[in-house]
Structures are given as structure tokens and as C-alpha cells.
Write a protein that binds this DNA or RNA. Structure first.
Length: 692
RNA sequence: AGCGGGUUGGGAUAGCCAGGAGAUUCCGCCGGGCUCAUAACCCGGAGAUCGGUAGUUCAAAUCUACCACCCGCUACCA
């Protein structure tokens, strides 16, 4: 690794965090992949030799659990998602040089080789720990396979984390009164030998590493708490079948912890690339161990610790090169709030494409909406605004008016010298672009292109070539055509296909994808035809309204479903139970205390009206004795709202407030089944009476 | 609880690490111009005491301390 400015003479490697093969991709994921792809493309425009790789993360408990629920093997389950990802990325012009997965042979072999080296160099030791065991299922219970009481705060907690109480991380063996999530039976603790990587011995190394690490500042700052505190050794094995076998004697069914084999996929994937194109073109061993290289990891900001603590230690222990930079992207919010995949409050990758939008529009939005590490808000309104006013009005319009004028009046590039002013302006943009990339600032790099197009619009407007004769107009149009070329080159990493279109309209040699920054000032073709149309179409208001309606209807449907199917305790992540005729009984029993925690009251509906735009939701005003509440319920189509006032209902009075379809709901009205058959009282209990 | 990040005209966003005159840019708003181009584009204007308080300094959006609110991470969610 060096800290020389890009481009360097060394091979670079850009990687993206592995998507977990467990669900669909949404625009939150895409932000990371688009950023990584744009950065790697941009490095190439600087002339940097670069490979861009990633792969699917196939192992771990959530996949094993979900596969079991679906009744398929973990491998089948994970492969299905892997294939889906592999198809989806290119559709967004995220073009990996190699995209593998952690369960393929290359990664398995490499991972085991890593571990053997660690063992040889004494970076690993065995320790007996207490692990929960389900005697009935005859199975070990790692991580989330076990629940129980948090030893610190006494709250109900998952095996790996006190998710409801104090939020502390729990080590295997910590949890009190463990219960198997497989069978619901009490689990017992048994002694078990596990392998540990001596992270603690890398403390000093990591302190140095974190200070020389480049990339985004969050990646440098967030892990300080760990690195400068006491580092725990990392338990690198799990009692599972699904995963990569711990190398060695093989009598145990220990597999490696997913965070061991996952980042090694970066190595494996680059190795596969190397094997495909030949080591003369790209030598993975040069990159990872034998030579100098520039390794840049692009990840989401939720996995910073893994890439700045575990991973560099793993590399160091195996005598591999360390990364030069870790770039951690912020999250994407939807209309100001976090995505909720269980509530279907997300913009899915497939959905976006099905709407017929060009992938480059979303790429532009995600890559330039805010700084790399800042969170980005997504809304269809904002999407429209940025596409229309920046891509269509500024970039598209400039390219179109310049090339059209040039083709009509000069059949191509006019025979004139580039003016000093424009040449300087373009040269400045090229410098800004290079500086931006050396700051790992994809957004700023993209803005250089838009700024250039903006300059072009001002320039052509002020010069008014349409009022000039041909000789006078020639230098102006000559400049504009050059500006178009520069815009195409500089925007290529972010909107590759659209840049290619501009390149073709210009009839320039080769392709925009192969262009380098220097081409911004290279001559443009003497002749080209009129462009076949503007690069970007505008999105009209009706379309945005339609998209928002779809989104809201979907979210409302999902939350209405959730509301109906809600059981007492909803701490579980996602319950995608197929609705059979009658739902199976919940096996897990709750204590009387848990029941008493619910404040159920008799209420009387005072008013009911539908919520505009929502299919199912109704806004109810309910008198619960002490006060009158506004409650939103998914009963609009199922009841005659006008007849509801006066009806007595049962209300969960101390349910968290929620906002449904923009309306606050302060409580929940209980109803049975799909038809939302309202619960009422048999006698004449007054509103406010507690239900026990 | 600890840690990280954020708070900048009506909305969004940059600047902060390396303090320096009118605080960037986009949308919106008001007025004007122009018409080659997608009713586009160009010019001009109004609008921000940069979350609060206290400090350091000749000088603070920027550095320091404290406070408020928001978001995230805390070892398997991009």
C-alpha cells in the first residue's frame, strides 16, 4: 500500500461489502454498490489499473434459520439469492470484474488456508466455553438460536444481544434461563471447545492502522472505541453445519464464524478474476501479498468495525497486505424515515426497474445526493426534481443544444481553435475531478461534470451563436462540443450508459468507458449527425403522484396485515407465515406479568372516517373513559364506517404511538381475523373499564 | 450507558480536519431577458446573526468546553 495520489503504478482493488444472501435488494443496498462501482470506474478514468469485485455472503445463522423455515437446504436458499443478486447488479450498471460467493471452492480453500496460517503462527488458541444446547433437538444453539434473560438487566434477550433491554452484546454462555428457539424448550449449557483469534495482540498494530487508513472519516473514528479500549479475542467458530468447516481433524462439526470467511471472499473473488484474465493482466497475489497495491473497501456504515478491526487483524495474522482505504456509505431513508423491510417500506431494486426508469437516474441520485458517508433521503419528489432540473435541464439540454447546433450548422465540430477560456475551464474541472477522487468523494467528482454542463449553458447563452454568422459562431460551438466531450468523460463513472450515448452522439472514437480524464481535451470528430434526441426524459408530476400512491398503498397494506396478525409480543423480526385457515397456536407461553403489561380498555367509538388515499385505513375517535383517542385501524372496507359510532370496542391503550399513512394512531382497536371482526363487550361495561 | 455522526435562508446540500473579507450550489419565490435547445436556458433580486451558551483568537460555521434535539453503532441489518 502507498499513500501516493491516484493514479499510482500499483494495481488497485475496489471491493463492495458482500450482500447477505437472505432477501431482496433495495436502493439502500444499491447505494453502496453504485458508489463502489462509480469509484472503480472513476479510478480507471484516471488511468489506474483496477479490479472491482464482490460476492454473496452465503453463511451464518439467519440463512440457516430461514432456509429451515422454508424447508430447503441453506445452500439452495442462499444460492437462489446469490443468483438473483448476480443478475440484478449489472442491470444497475454495477459491473463487477468478478462476483463470486463465499460458499464456492475458491473461498473455502482460501479461508481454510488463512486459518492454517494463523494456527502455524500461533494466532489462534482453543478455549472451553459454555454453549447452549437443546437436548431434545440434539443440537447446539449458537447466537440467535437461543433466548433467555439478560444477565445484566434481566430483560428478555436474544443469545447474542440484549435486544430489548440494555442493548449489550452477549457472549455465548451469558444468557440466563436459556430457551431454545427451535423447540421452545429450556436449553442447557454444555462445555465446548472453540477457537479464538488473538485480536488482543493486534491492539497496537490496529492503532497505527486506523491512523493511516484513508477513506471516509466515520471508518476511522467509529472503531476507536474498540481499538483504544480492551479488544476481546474473537471466537471464530460456531456449532453449526452450515458454513466452512474448521480445517483440521474434522471430527467436530465446528464451522467458521461467517465474519471469517466473508471478507476473505474479497481475496477469493480477485483470485478468480486473476485466473480468468491471467496474471499478466491482474495478479491477485501481487495485490494481496507480494507487492504494493491499493485496496479500497466500500461498505455500508453498519459493518465498519468488521472492516477496521477484525479484517485487518485477520490479514495481518495471515501476512497479507492491509487495505489502503475503507469508505463507509451512509444509509438511505425513505421520505425521512428508515427503511423497514418487514413493513415493505422500501424501494426495491426490481421495483425501480419495473417502473421503467433508467438505472443511471438512480445511480446519479444515490451517488451525488450527499457526501459519501452522509445519510441520504429518498423520495420520488426529490428523485423527480434532481432528474428534471439537473440531468434533463442542465446536462441533457446542454448536450442536445450544443450537438444539434453543431451538426446543423457545421456538420460536426467547427474548424476553429479551442478558446483559452474554455480550455482552462475544462482543465480545472479535470483537476477538481482528480482531487475529488483522491478524497474518495464520488459526489464531488460527479458534480464537476454537471458544473461543466452548467457552464456550457451559460456560455452558449451569453455568446448567442444563433445571432452570429458562421465564422463568428464557429469558435463558440467548437468550445461547446469540447465541453460535451468533457461532460461525457467526467460523468461516465456515475451514469455510464448515458455517457456512452453522449459519446455516440458525438461519434467519438472508442467508448466513453475506456476514456481517461485526458480525453476531455482531446479533439472531437470533424463530423457527426444530429443527435437522435435528448439524453434524459423528464418525469412529470402525475407519475410522481402515482408512484407515491403505490408506495403508500403497499406500506399501508403491510402495516394493516401486521396489525391484524399482531400477537402480544412482537419482538420477532419478521413473521412471513403463510396465512392458513386457522393460524397455529403460538407455542411460547407468556407470564402473567407480560399479560398485565397490556392496558386493555373498553372504549366507545365516537367517530369514524376513512383516510383519504388509503384503501383500508380508517381514523377512529374512541372514548376510553379517561380520554378520547385517535386510533387508526385497517377496517375501512370491512365495516360501514357510518354505523360504527356508538359501538363498544376493546382498545390496547398503552400501545406505542405509530404513524400510519401520515396519521397518528394512539392505541389499537382489537379485531379478529381477516375480516376485522371487532371485539366488543357482552354486557354494559362503561368506557374506560379495564379488561382483565 | 458508552461511542460515532448530524443540526447551515422555505426545502435540500457544500464548506469544518489545515480559522480570514459579500457563507457554496440546487429547488422554490419575485423581477427581467432570450429563443439554438426538452416552456428550456440566461441575468438580477429577496431570504441564514451557520442548534444553544460560554471560551480561545486581531479574526470562529470552522478550534475548545458544556447543553439541547435528531440519527446510528455496540461484535450477524447497506
Amino acid at each position: 500500500m502507498t499513500h501516493d495520489e491516484f493514479p499510482t503504478d500499483n494495481p488497485a482493488l475496489v471491493t463492495c461489502g458482500l450482500p447477505y444472501a437472505n432477501g431482496d435488494l433495495h436502493v439502500g443496498h444499491l447505494r453502496t454498490y453504485v458508489s463502489g462501482d462509480a469509484f472503480s470506474r472513476a479510478l480507471r478514468t484516471l488511468g489506474q489499473r483496477t479490479a472491482f469485485v464482490s460476492g454473496s455472503d452465503m453463511h451464518g445463522t439467519p440463512i440457516a434459520v430461514n432456509a429451515e423455515q422454508e424447508g430447503v437446504s441453506p445452500e439452495e436458499f442462499a444460492l437462489r439469492h446469490h443468483e438473483q443478486y448476480e443478475e440484478t447488479f449489472p442491470r444497475f450498471n454495477v459491473d463487477f470484474d468478478n462476483y463470486g460467493h463465499t460458499h464456492d471452492e475458491t473461498n473455502v480453500e482460501l479461508t481454510q488456508a488463512f486459518v492454517r496460517t494463523w494456527e502455524e503462527n500461533d494466532h489462534v488458541y482453543e478455549k472451553e466455553i459454555q454453549v447452549a444446547y437443546d437436548p431434545e433437538a440434539d443440537q447446539w444453539l449458537p447466537d440467535r438460536y437461543v433466548e433467555g434473560e439478560c444477565p445484566y438487566c434481566g430483560e428478555h434477550a436474544r443469545g447474542d444481544e440484549c435486544d430489548e433491554g440494555c442493548q449489550r452484546h452477549l457472549e455465548p454462555g451469558d444468557i440466563v434461563d436459556p430457551v431454545s428457539t427451535l423447540t421452545g424448550n429450556p436449553a442447557e449449557y454444555r462445555e465446548r471447545e472453540h477457537e479464538f483469534l488473538r485480536l488482543s495482540e493486534f491492539q497496537e498494530y490496529l492503532e497505527g492502522f486506523i491512523n493511516r487508513l484513508e477513506g471516509t472519516s466515520n471508518a476511522q473514528n467509529q472503531p476507536r472505541e474498540w481499538i483504544e479500549g480492551d479488544l476481546q479475542d474473537l471466537c471464530i467458530t460456531r456449532d453449526m453445519d452450515w458454513g466452512i468447516d474448521y480445517p483440521g481433524d474434522g471430527e467436530d462439526d465446528l464451522v467458521l464464524y461467517v465474519w471469517v470467511d466473508a471478507p476473505i471472499e474479497y481475496v477469493a473473488s480477485s483470485k478468480q478474476y486473476s485466473e480468468r484474465v491471467g496474471t499478466d493482466t491482474y495478479d491477485w497475489e501481487e495485490v494481496w501479498r507480494d507487492g504494493d497495491s491499493e485496496i479500497v473497501h466500500v461498505i455500508g456504515r453498519d459493518i465498519i468495525q468488521h472492516h477496521t478491526v477484525f479484517w485487518p487483524s485477520m490479514l495481518r495474522a495471515a501476512e497479507y497486505n492491509e487495505p489502503r482505504a475503507v469508505c463507509a456509505t451512509g444509509f438511505v431513508n425513505l421520505n425521512g424515515k428508515a427503511f423497514s423491510t418487514s413493513r415493505n417500506r422500501a424501494i426495491w431494486a426490481d421495483e425501480y426497474l419495473q417502473e421503467g426508469f433508467h438505472p443511471d437516474l438512480l445511480r446519479y441520485y444515490l451517488a451525488t445526493a450527499a457526501g459519501f458517508e452522509r445519510d441520504v433521503n429518498f423520495s420520488w419528489e426529490r428523485f423527480q426534481e434532481r432528474v428534471n432540473s439537473e440531468l434533463a435541464d442542465v446536462v441533457g439540454n446542454f448536450v442536445n443544444r450544443a450537438l444539434l447546433f453543431a451538426a446543423r450548422n457545421f456538420d460536426g465540430t467547427p474548424d476553429a481553435e479551442l478558446t483559452d477560456e474554455t480550455e482552462t475551464r475544462i482543465a480545472e474541472a479535470m483537476d477538481d475531478y482528480e482531487d475529488a477522487l483522491n478524497d474518495y468523494d464520488v459526489r464531488a467528482a460527479g458534480e464537476t461534470a454537471v458544473a461543466l454542463a452548467r457552464y456550457g449553458n451559460e456560455y452558449i447563452q451569453n455568446a448567442e451563436p444563433w445571432k452570429l454568422d458562421a465564422d463568428e459562431a464557429a469558435p463558440v460551438i467548437r468550445d461547446c462540443v469540447q465541453l460535451v466531450k468533457a461532460v461525457a468523460v467526467l460523468l461516465q463513472p456515475i451514469t455510464p450508459e448515458k455517457a456512452e450515448e453522449a459519446w455516440d452522439q458525438l461519434d467519438a472514437d472508442g467508448s466513453a468507458a475506456d476514456a481517461t480524464v485526458g480525453d476531455c481535451l482531446q479533439a472531437t470528430p470533424d463530423s457527426f449527425a444530429e443527435p437522435d434526441g435528448p439524453l434524459f426524459e423528464k418525469i412529470d408530476d402525475e407519475r410522481v403522484a402515482e408512484l407515491n400512491e403505490k408506495l403508500e398503498a403497499r406500506v399501508e397494506e403491510a402495516s394493516a396485515d401486521e396489525e391484524e396478525g399482531e400477537t402480544v409480543e412482537s419482538g420477532e423480526d419478521e413473521s412471513e407465515s403463510e396465512s392458513a385457515d386457522v393460524e397455529a397456536l403460538v407455542e411460547e407461553r407468556v407470564g402473567f406479568d407480560d399479560f398485565e403489561a397490556l392496558d386493555l380498555r373498553v372504549g366507545r367509538v365516537d367517530g369514524a372516517e376513512g383516510i383519504e388515499g388509503a384503501d383500508k385505513l380508517a381514523r377512529l375517535t374512541v372514548d376510553i373513559g379517561v380520554e378520547t383517542r385517535q386510533i387508526v385501524a385497517g377496517i375501512k372496507q370491512l365495516h360501514d364506517l357510518d354505523e360504527l359510532p356508538g359501538t363498544k370496542v376493546i382498545v390496547v391503550a398503552n400501545l406505542e404511538r405509530a404513524e400510519l399513512f401520515g396519521v397518528e394512531s394512539n392505541g389499537m382497536v382489537l379485531a379478529a381475523g381477516e375480516d376485522a371482526d371487532l371485539l366488543t363487550t357482552h354486557g354494559d361495561a362503561e368506557p374506560g373499564t379495564r379488561v382483565k
